[in-house]
Amino acid sequence: MIRFLIFSLYSSFLLVSCAVYRYPEAVGMRESEMKELNTYYIDTTKAFVYRAKVNAFKQDVNGTLLVKALAADEHRIALVSDFGQTLFDLTISPDKDVVHFIMPDLDKKFIRKEIAGIFRTMTQRTFASSALMFSGKQHYPVYVSNDSYYLLKQREVDRITKTKGTKERFTVIYNDVNSGIPLGVTVEHQQLPITIHLFLDRNQSTL
């Protein structure tokens, strides 16, 4: 009996630890040539100014999101309230983030981690050598890099699905891409009540 229980627990542990996210309608994965993805924010001469509408935990925050590439893989991201108060100001790299300022109300480890995670996914260039296979009908190509799925439309990244374990964590959707510049971005969080809508302010951006 005890041997059976140990075997059951071991089997369950293996099943859980090996479980991966299943992308809708995907039937498998194939190797592909190395593909460079999400290059919207790699130009260090540009500064993006977005009108931001954030709904987080039933609180509305409106303001301005500033995005500046310090290097191809390093971004300075700041959210400023309409009244001019900096809510957060971070430098985000692939493996670390530096907080320059964060409002005391937001200065909690899990909030900092979530903010950095969302905007890292939104701004970070990546390289993928795996793509999903779909059976039957035509499907937009989807490349896989670590735990993120990049769906391409007209050769541009249309959306990124960030996953953790078997579940979607959040989705970044580039609503309108014009000459390689996302005019709108939506972030929908599947695990937390967070939605972000960004609208590019062309006049204030340096493009």
Binding site: L66, K68, T206
Partner: peptide, 13 residues
């Protein structure tokens, strides 16, 4: 209203 931030050249107006 001009918001000046050290990492951008022109303030957000």
């Amino acid at each position: 209203q001009y918001k000046h931030m050290s990492f951008i050249k022109k303030p957000v107006e």
